[in-house]
Design a protein around this nucleic acid. Structure first.
Lengths: 252, 252
DNA sequence: GCTACTTTGTGCGTGCCTTCACAAGCGGCT
DNA sequence: AGCCGCTTGTGAAGGCACGCACAAAGTAGC
C-alpha cells in the first residue's frame, strides 16, 4: 500500500475556516480505505442481526489494530457507547454517508474485453451503489451488444454519452495503448475520478483523481516476498557471494 | 494527476529473520511497489532502443518525484552514472533480480468465473514471469476444460496439484463465501503468498503473506473523492493539488 | 589539464500514520 | 445510590516516508 498521494491534507495550518466541510474535513486517505472495509463487515453483521459490536471484535474481523479502528471511526463522528461498543446499523449508515455512498455515482466502463467483461458482470458494483451506466469499446463485434441491459457504445461517443448520463467515475480497462486517449475523452466529459486498470501512467489535469490498479505489479510485489522468504530461509548467515556491490551496510 | 496506491493489506510485518542481507535488506514496501512500475517503463524504453535515462525523465514517465526515484533505485544498488543517467538495460535487469523476477513463480488461479477468466487471459502475467500453471473451480461445466492450455481442476485437488507443480503464489477469485476454505487448502499446499480478490479478510498463519485487491473498495474510495470535491466545490474552497502517485493493484 | 555543466546519491527536516496507554464515560450489580 | 468493570476516545510518542537541497562524481569543452 501503499502509497499515497496527497490526501486530504490541505496545505498549511488551515484548520480554522474549514467549517463548511462537515464530512470533507481531512480524513486521512488510509482511513478512507479502511472505512470501506469496515462498511462491508458491518453490513454482514447487520444481516446476522448483530446489534452492537466492539472495536476489538470489528478490528479482528477486518484485520486491523483496534486503536487504529477507533481512531478511524472517530473521523466519522462518535457513534460508540463506552462500555458497550458500536451500534451496527447507525454506524453502517454513518460510514456510508461519510464516504458519499448515499448519493449514487454513475460509472462508465471503457474497454469491454476480458477484464472489462468481468468488471461489468461484477455484482459488487451495482449492488453497492455503483451502477455501470455506460460502456464503450472499439471492437465492432462488441459495440452494439447489451451487457446487463446496458448498450455498448463506440468509444468515439464517450464524451457525449458520459456527459449526458452524468457519469462521475470512469473505469478504464482498455489495452495500455488506448488508455490515454480514452482518459482524455473522459476528462473532456467532466469526469473527475478515474479507476485505471491499464498498465500506463495517465496524464491528467490536477483536478482529476486517478487510482491505478495494476495486477502485474501486485504479483511482482508478491514475487518479491517469495524471494525474500526464500533467501531468509536458506541463508543461515553466510555472506554475500560473488555479485557486485560492496554496498553500504548500514545496519539501519 | 494523482495517484496512489494502496496498499493492500499485508498480514504481517516483521518477523522474518533479519540475516538475509543482500537484497532482502529492508526495502520499504512502498519502494517495492514503485520498482515494479519503473520496471515496466524501463522495459518500454529498452524496446525503443534507449540507452540511458535520467532520473528526471524516468520520474516524469512514472509520475513520481525524481528524488524519491533516485532513493528507490539506491536500494537496488548504484547503477547510475553521474552526469549521464541510468543505463536502461542493466538497471532493468537489476530491478528484476531485486524483485525476484529472475526466478519464475508458478501461479495458481482459484475460481474461474467472470473475474478468474479475465485473470487467466490477462497477458501481463505469463509475459512477465508469472505463468498460471494451475486453475481450479467447482462448477462441473468448467472443471475439465482448458484455458490457455491449462486444464481446470476441481478445487478439492488444490493441495495436491499445487504441491506437485510447485506453486508459490495463489490468486483467489472465488465468491467470498468460498475464499477462506480455498485459502486454507493453499496454505496446506505450502503456498505462502496469496493475492485475494474475494471480498473477505482471510485468516492465515503468520508466515503467509496476503495482498487484497478489492474492486468495490476502490470505487468507494473514488466515490468519497467525488463527494469531497462536490462539497469543496460548492463552498469554493481549494482545488486539490496534483500528485504523485503510487500504484495499486486492484484495490488493495 | 582545468573549468563548467549535468546528474546521481543522500543527509536532513517535516508531516502523516500508527501504536501505546490511559482518562472519561456508560451499564450493571448490589 | 454507589461501585465496578468494560469499552470508547484521544494525547503523546515513535516510525516511516517524502521531498528539498547539496556535495560528490562524471562528462564535455577549451
Amino acid at each position: 500500500m501503499t502509497l499515497r498521494s496527497h490526501a486530504g491534507s490541505s496545505a498549511r495550518a488551515g484548520g480554522a475556516s474549514r467549517t463548511a466541510a462537515k464530512l470533507a474535513r481531512s480524513i486521512p486517505e488510509a482511513t478512507v480505505a479502511r472505512l470501506a472495509v469496515y462498511l462491508r463487515i458491518l453490513g454482514e453483521l447487520a444481516e446476522q442481526g448483530a446489534d452492537t459490536v466492539s472495536s476489538e471484535e470489528l478490528a479482528a474481523a477486518t484485520g486491523v489494530n483496534s486503536a487504529k479502528l477507533r481512531k478511524d471511526l472517530s473521523y466519522v463522528g462518535s457513534y460508540g457507547i463506552r462500555g458497550v461498543g458500536y451500534e451496527v446499523v447507525p454506524l453502517h449508515h454513518e460510514i456510508e454517508r461519510t464516504l458519499g455512498l448515499d448519493q449514487k455515482q454513475a460509472v462508465a466502463l471503457i474497454g469491454v474485453g476480458n477484464l472489462g467483461h468481468a468488471l461489468a458482470g461484477y455484482g459488487g458494483f451495482g449492488g453497492r451503489g455503483f451502477p455501470v451506466t455506460a460502456m464503450f469499446d472499439v471492437d465492432p463485434d462488441i459495440v452494439g451488444i447489451r451487457i446487463n441491459g446496458i448498450l455498448v457504445d463506440h468509444v468515439r461517443d464517450i464524451s457525449a454519452v458520459c456527459a449526458a448520463r452524468g457519469v462521475t467515475i470512469g473505469m478504464i480497462a482498455t489495452p495500455g495503448s488506448a488508455a490515454q486517449a480514452v482518459c482524455d475523452q473522459l476528462v473532456d466529459a467532466g469526469v473527475e475520478c478515474i479507476l485505471n486498470f491499464a498498465p500506463v501512467v495517465l496524464q491528467v489535469p490536477d483536478r482529476v483523481e486517478v487510482r491505478k490498479v495494476d495486477l502485474a505489479v501486485e504479483l511482482q510485489i508478491l514475487a518479491f516476498h517469495v524471494a525474500r522468504r526464500r533467501v531468509a530461509g536458506t541463508d543461515g548467515s553466510e555472506p554475500a557471494k560473488g555479485a557486485t556491490n560492496g554496498s553500504v551496510v548500514l545496519p539501519r
